[in-house]
């Protein structure tokens, strides 16, 4: 009894902070979300309201596509980096992880440097005699930004997963006459399965909530975080902002939980 009471007291400050500054505000958010003229129906507005639905229709495929491409690229890169030893590998791997610490706004800015009006891609295309290619401020630019912050995270996860691959399995498959492609499909992909699912889910969830990148690149594109933000600041429509952000929050949380149970990982924290 004594011991558990001491442990409770030890965790109490954290509990107080959580209740006062997260649980209560979020409960309040739930009430505010239902305080508009539609009431509780506000929570369905993401599908019933045309503008919000359009925003959802933009956000979901964008995040999903970015997640899939990131995981695909990261799987190849992660397995390759895990297996190949070369000089400076540690430096390369460190450099690859730096973008993890960049806020979304910086990622957006880097996309501008790549594909903006004075961007690298534009200059190169111009010098090749083509029309100047500028796509930073479109859905494609946003997609590039999502790749930028998703790939490093996936590479790290998949490198860790690739480390645990049993080379004997591949050798066995080879000895049975499997081609390299078949080895990839029959041995490597299944073994990486949980890590692939987990990475994809985390990327998808991060993409759904990515505010900073979209904020820098385009207030024109309707993705959910931008929609929520402009409902709040431009229209002072607190009920809509609250209900939409809660729907978004629950959605990302559900995705992370599902990925966790699928991949058997201990933590949803990205």
């Amino acid at each position: 009894m004594r011991a558990s009471r001491l442990l409770f007291l030890t965790a109490l400050p954290a509990l107080v902070i959580f209740i006062a500054f997260w649980l209560l505000p979020v409960s309040r958010l739930v009430l505010v979300g239902a305080s508009g003229k539609e009431g509780l129906a506000a929570y369905l507005s993401v599908v019933t309201n045309d503008i919000y639905r359009a925003s959802l229709v933009n956000t979901v495929p964008l995040s999903a596509a970015a997640a899939l491409v990131s995981v695909g690229v990261a799987a190849v890169v992660g397995v390759y980096l895990q297996r190949r030893e070369f000089r400076g590998k540690r430096v390369v791997v460190s450099l690859l992880t730096f973008p993890l610490a960049f806020p979304g706004v910086v990622v957006g800015f880097l996309v501008i440097l790549l594909a903006g009006r004075q961007g690298l891609i534009g200059q190169v295309s111009e010098q090749l005699g083509m029309e100047k290619v500028v796509f930073a401020y479109s859905l494609a630019g946003l997609f590039l930004g999502y790749l930028y912050f998703s790939i490093p995270r996936c590479v790290l996860t998949l490198m860790a997963a690739a480390e645990k691959l049993d080379p004997a399995l591949e050798e066995a498959a080879r000895s049975l006459g499997a081609s390299p492609w078949r080895v990839v499909i029959d041995v490597i992909v299944p073994a990486l399965g949980p890590a692939l699912v987990a990475s994809a889910a985390i990327c998808f969830a991060t993409g759904m909530g990515a505010f900073g990148t979209a904020f820098t690149l385009a207030s024109k594109i309707n993705v959910l975080p931008i929609t929520i933000y402009s409902e709040f600041t431009n229209y002072a429509n607190f009920a809509a902002a609250a209900s939409l952000s809660l729907v978004l929050g629950v959605l990302t949380w559900l995705i992370l939980m599902a990925a966790r149970s699928l991949s058997g990982q201990g933590s949803a924290a990205a």
Partner: peptide, 19 residues
């Protein structure tokens, strides 16, 4: 305690501002 990390920062920020 992981919820504020799992949920989009925008939602947490909004909740704090409204509260």
């Amino acid at each position: 305690l992981v919820l504020p990390v799992a949920m989009p920062g925008l939602a947490t920020g909004l909740a704090l501002v409204l509260a």
